[in-house]
């Protein structure tokens, strides 16, 4: 550590001694301290600081749906290595995740589950929609069972188009999101026509009447109005 001594000016040493007492080892001097000089603290807005922290290190939910998840794995793996940008550690539990990448087609059976997983993530949480299916249903848009985009169910911050997007494109999307989070700019688009609601809250119509003996009053359900879908 003695070699570091030459970087430390007398003024800095004096300030440090005033603060911490004499004879404190030099190893307490960090690069950051050197940059800051004799200033023992940084002045910034708390929000700005928090945004910077959030954007610099994001935990991604380990969440695979379809084809795009294979390219997502390639993005995590060697060569592309998303971790270089501070967001490459997939967490298996939604309780530990800040970011959910939605990699694939969402179908009627899965949408309520995805909504539940999203709800389980702690605030603040961010969403990257990967691929055309999460934008509008992609090549399966006309399918009887396909939800026309992730935004029908959860709010999406960044859309990465492609079928599937290349790893480079996904990295661009995630880094763009990090940038926006760090600048405090992230404001997701909120469309969400499909919400989970209690069965008894649905308007009584033909379908509800038919299913009344199969579903309990307080069961959570998702009602798809395909006619109004884009």
């Amino acid at each position: 550590m003695s070699s570091d001594n030459q970087h430390v000016t007398t003024a800095q040493t004096k300030t440090r001694e005033a603060r911490m007492g004499e004879g404190v080892d030099d190893r307490f001097n960090s690069r950051l301290r050197e940059v800051l000089g004799s200033m023992p603290f940084i002045l910034t807005k708390f929000d700005k600081f928090m945004n910077w922290v959030r954007g610099s290190s994001m935990f991604v939910l380990q969440f695979g749906i379809a084809c795009c998840s294979i390219e997502m794995i390639h993005t995590y793996a060697v060569k592309h290595d998303l971790d270089r940008f501070g967001s490459g550690i997939p967490r298996a539990s939604p309780r530990q995740a800040d970011l959910i990448i939605v990699p694939g087609t969402i179908v009627s059976k899965f949408a309520p589950r995805m909504k539940r997983v999203y709800d389980q993530m702690p605030e603040p949480k961010f969403v990257v929609g990967m691929g055309n299916c999460t934008a509008a249903g992609g090549p399966f848009q006309e399918g009887y069972n396909v939800v026309k985009g992730a935004e029908e169910v959860i709010p999406v911050d960044i859309h990465v188009p492609g079928c599937p997007p290349r790893p480079e494109a996904l990295i661009y999307g995630v880094v763009k999101l990090q940038e926006r989070v760090a600048n405090g700019e992230s404001s997701p688009v909120v469309v969400k026509p499909y919400e989970l609601e209690e069965f008894s809250d649905l308007p009584r119509d033909e379908v509800v009447e038919k299913l009344a003996d199969q579903i309990d009053e307080d069961d959570l359900v998702m009602r798809y109005n395909w006619r109004n879908s884009p």
């Binding site: 069965f199 509800v208 038919k210 009602r223």
Partner: peptide, 23 residues
């Protein structure tokens, strides 16, 4: 899903009909 109404590859299936899926 178990609560699906109709059989989608049959000839008279109406794709615009609303569907309810329980969680």
């Amino acid at each position: 899903p178990e609560t699906w109404q109709g059989h989608p590859l049959s000839l008279d299936y109406d794709q615009d009909k609303p569907q309810i899926v329980p969680l």
